[in-house]
Computed example of a mutant assay.
Amino acid sequence: MPIDLSHRIETGMTVYPGDPSVSVEPHATHARDEYRVDVARLGSHTGTHVDAPIHVIPGGRTLDTYALDRFAFEAEKVDCTDLGDRDPITRERVPDRELDLVVFWTGWSTHWGTDRYLDHPYLTPEAATACAERGYAVGTDTLSPDPTPTENATGSEPDGFRAHHAVLGAGDLVVENLRNLGALPERFELRAYPLALGGDGAPVRAVGIVE
């Protein structure tokens, strides 16, 4: 059974601070043109999307260097819904089993479209390194596996994109802004095929497959 894990792409949707804003507007209409076409303006990391290594690694791999089967993952969901605003996800929560991708379920997708969505839990550098060492891609229902800068940030948080660097630097992928993870069992298949942009990242239609 397929379960939709993607946010709808629409005008004014949440984006990472500094990323391009999103608009989806009519270009042609039935009344004027006898057909409909919309024009979409968005960044490569809009909504539910996948990051390629070149996103943060100069000279890193681009999306078009990965075979399509790399975007279908045997995944395990880790329940992190006990965490609050800007809480760390520590190394102890990272599983050590045979799988392609670990999904950290924080429940933060319920805050999508609000300011609080930016104050999400994040992976510690040690947790991200453990994922990289075990060969895992990373999925999350947050804006980033790293802390997102807001006025609520504290001095104890890691700076920069250390979780991104650990996972993407190992040649693995990162899938961000998932939703509806509560509808999934602990083990499932995640399919997250990107638009054929071929570069640093692209929106995906993420689907969880449950037997």
Score class of each variant (00 low, 15 high):
206 A>E: 06
168 L>F: 12
211 E>D: 14
71 F>W: 07
142 T>W: 05
5 L>M: 02
34 E>M: 02
64 D>H: 08
115 D>S: 11
32 R>V: 13
138 V>A: 08
68 L>C: 15
72 A>D: 09
156 S>T: 15
162 R>G: 10
124 T>I: 06
156 S>E: 15
188 F>K: 05
25 E>F: 07
107 G>H: 06
146 D>T: 12
209 I>M: 11
18 G>C: 01
104 F>M: 00
107 G>T: 02
88 P>T: 03
57 I>M: 11
80 C>H: 01
164 H>T: 11
154 T>D: 08
173 L>R: 10
173 L>A: 12
156 S>H: 15
172 D>P: 01
204 V>I: 10
144 S>Y: 04
194 P>M: 09
64 D>M: 03
2 P>S: 08
86 R>S: 12
30 H>L: 14
69 D>I: 10
128 A>C: 02
185 P>V: 07
194 P>R: 06
142 T>M: 11
38 D>R: 13
12 G>K: 00
196 A>I: 10
29 T>K: 07
79 D>E: 02
139 G>L: 01
69 D>W: 12
4 D>E: 07
76 E>Q: 10
185 P>I: 06
35 Y>M: 14
33 D>R: 05
137 A>K: 00
99 L>H: 07
140 T>C: 14
79 D>V: 09
110 T>D: 13
67 A>F: 10
90 T>C: 01
111 H>M: 12
149 P>R: 10
82 D>K: 07
162 R>E: 15
92 E>F: 07
176 E>N: 13
86 R>H: 08
175 V>H: 02
201 G>N: 04
137 A>C: 12
159 D>Y: 04
105 W>M: 03
1 M>N: 15
204 V>A: 12
147 P>N: 04
155 G>V: 05
93 R>D: 10
180 N>W: 06
115 D>I: 09
51 D>K: 11
46 T>C: 13
43 G>N: 03
4 D>A: 07
11 T>C: 06
86 R>W: 06
136 Y>A: 02
16 Y>I: 02
151 E>H: 15
63 L>T: 04
87 D>K: 01
63 L>P: 00
34 E>D: 05
119 D>I: 09
206 A>Q: 08
62 T>G: 14
186 E>A: 11
136 Y>G: 00
69 D>L: 03
69 D>S: 14
167 V>R: 00
171 G>I: 12
78 V>N: 03
89 I>P: 03
207 V>G: 10
70 R>N: 07
159 D>M: 06
189 E>V: 15
150 T>L: 00
187 R>C: 02
102 V>C: 00
200 D>S: 14
83 L>F: 10
59 G>P: 00
87 D>Y: 02
118 L>G: 04
179 R>P: 00
91 R>E: 15
133 E>K: 07
154 T>P: 06
159 D>V: 12
196 A>F: 11
33 D>I: 00
60 G>T: 11
207 V>A: 07
145 P>A: 05
210 V>A: 05
12 G>C: 03
47 G>L: 05
152 N>M: 10
